[in-house]
Design a protein around this nucleic acid. Structure first.
Length: 497
RNA sequence: GGUCGAGUGGCCGAGUGGCUAGGCAGAGGUCUGCAAAACCUCGUACAUCGGUUCGAAUCCGUUCUCGACCUCCA
């Protein structure tokens, strides 16, 4: 059924490449998850949703995906590496909790948000603290390869030595010589031989809370090691897709590539995918800048820049209307427009699910209509196959929706499409919303029955030409965000946009 | 400073050489007791200057503006 091959933009080659899994039909996908020391924000939502759609679409195409997304529950060091503080430990001290209590709390919170956003759960969600032995083993391997050195109980990756064998910086377009000249002077305190080296194992200071025994010291693993340990454990040394935010490209993913090559002499991933950032007023939103909006705040409308609350599906739709490699600017206006767009799409989904083909012997098939639907359907999948261009796909989806709406309201007879095309249009629309975009209706289930009762009364009042009553019901429902739709031969409802 | 990317109609946002993106807002129309929804029609958009080409938002160069990465960040 695949009309066009799937192409993926590979950061490694800076080109779109045909997607050819290493072991079809299996696909291994690893995505960098959150560091759990705070509530998830819009940026986390973007990464999670983007790769959720990648996962969903691969599944839709028939691939057997193993999706691994880690939880980082050892805080990467803040500030200068040598005197830095562990983020989770810092938070734990502040709140007088066990570090594990902190990471558990925010991991739970993250999961709650991701569920609201209707992202499919990863098949494996490993934690860094659960893979300390694997990480120690990796350090040993890299030492054995002669690409790391130990100083005072800490172990560092020797980037210069590695660079002689295999170029460091291929992913992010860095050149080691330039990194060397561009980096700050060593302050003399550093144990690193070169400023570009990075830690594989750090000896813990006495007040450090999270520490483990190792051949070198009581300490903790370096901050790029966990992903190498967990991806190789669950997906092998060479797997299909590695994803994450653009901000992780350097140094995090660069280090992963170096570590992977040092240990197993192969690049960890075949395709590297990076989603772009969300901006607020044109500026990157991020923890370090303190200008982020958490998802809880967004869903509750509880933040000074928010004019109102925005539902999880509004956020999901908003994120999918931009291509994942473009920056996406947050604004109330954009979110409000997104909410309307989402409602329009989901109203179409509601009616499409209820529609069946009705032959009208008076009406002939209209090749022009059929052609338009066929073109839109094809274009929609072509867009998805072109590096997961959900924004463009949604554009085509709206064109399909117009046909569905027209058929639903009786402005076009279903017969103009013919049974075959009609059924395909309806089925594809529903499946695309459900399985690929992952959009769901936001309503309590009991509401449906209740509405049916009210609409019956409405219809009766109308029959009796009791227009005062008709208006009253309509207004009452409107206050609840429900629109009454009068048509030639039926009455239905829709979410107010 | 180095590296990379971006500037599209009132707003958001696709689009890499010719073929209507789409959504929101706005105007007109069909339908309707009225309205809403839905459907139809409407915008002569592509930062600037120059170049390549039969033809450029799309390729090349100039200028301006903005952003990201280079330190933890999705």
């Amino acid at each position: 059924m695949q009309l066009h091959p799937l192409n993926i933009y590979n950061t490694l080659s800076r080109k779109k490449e045909p997607f050819e899994p290493i072991n079809p039909p299996n696909v291994g996908m690893y995505v960098c998850g959150p560091t759990v020391y705070g509530d998830a924000h819009l940026g986390h939502a973007r990464a999670a949703i983007v790769f959720d759609v990648v996962h969903r679409y691969l599944k839709f195409l028939g691939y057997k995906v193993r999706y691994v997304r880690n939880i980082t529950d050892v805080g990467h060091l803040e500030a200068d590496a040598d005197e830095g503080e562990d983020k989770i430990a810092k938070k734990a001290k502040l709140e007088q909790l066990e570090p594990m209590e902190v990471s558990q709390f925010y991991a739970d919170s993250y999961h709650k948000d991701m569920e609201l956003l209707n992202t499919l759960k990863p098949h494996i969600e490993p934690r860094a603290t659960g893979h300390i032995p694997e990480q120690i083993k990796l350090v040993e391997n890299i030492l054995k390869e002669g690409l790391a050195y130990e100083v005072n109980g800490s172990v560092y990756f020797d980037v210069l030595k590695y660079n002689d064998k295999k170029r460091y910086g291929r992913l992010s377009g860095r050149v080691v010589e330039e990194l060397m000249s561009g980096s700050r002077e060593l302050d003399g305190q550093s144990e690193k031989r070169n400023p570009v080296d990075f830690a594989l194992w750090k000896k813990a200071s006495p007040e450090h809370l999270m520490k483990w025994d190792s051949p070198w010291s009581l300490g903790f693993p370096g901050w790029h090691l966990e992903c190498t340990a967990m991806s190789s454990k669950y997906l092998g040394d060479h797997f299909d897709i590695h994803g994450g935010g653009m901000d992780l490209m350097f140094p995090h993913h660069e280090c992963e590539i170096a570590q992977g090559n040092a240990c197993s002499h192969t690049d960890p991933a075949k395709y590297w995918m990076h989603n772009n950032m969300i901006t607020i007023n044109g500026q990157k939103m991020g923890k370090s800048l303190g200008n982020f909006i958490t998802l809880q705040e967004l869903f509750a409308g509880d933040h000074k820049v928010l004019e109102e609350a925005y539902s999880p599906m509004t956020v999901r739709y908003f994120i999918l209307t931009a291509h994942y490699r473009s920056t996406l600017d947050f604004s109330n206006q954009a979110l409000q427009a997104a909410r309307k767009g989402y409602k329009k799409l989901i109203n179409g989904y509601r009616i499409a699910k209820s529609m069946t083909y009705l032959e009208d012997p008076e009406v002939e098939k209209d090749e022009k209509q059929i052609g338009q639907v066929r073109n839109s359907l094809e274009a929609m999948f072509r867009a998805m196959n072109d590096d997961f261009n959900s924004a463009q796909a949604i554009g085509h989806l709206f064109n399909i929706l117009k046909k569905i709406n027209a058929a639903y309201t009786g402005q076009l007879a279903a017969s103009v499409f013919g049974k075959e095309m009609f059924d395909e249009m309806i089925r594809t629309y529903v499946r695309f919303i459900e399985e690929v975009l992952g959009l769901v209706e936001e309503k309590p289930e009991e509401q449906e029955e209740l509405l049916r009762v009210v609409l019956k009364m409405y219809a009766r009042a109308k029959q009796a030409r009791d227009y005062d009553k008709v208006d009253e019901i309509r207004n009452d429902l409107k206050r609840m965000g429900i629109l009454v739709k009068d048509m030639k031969n039926k009455i239905d409802w829709a979410y107010e946009e």
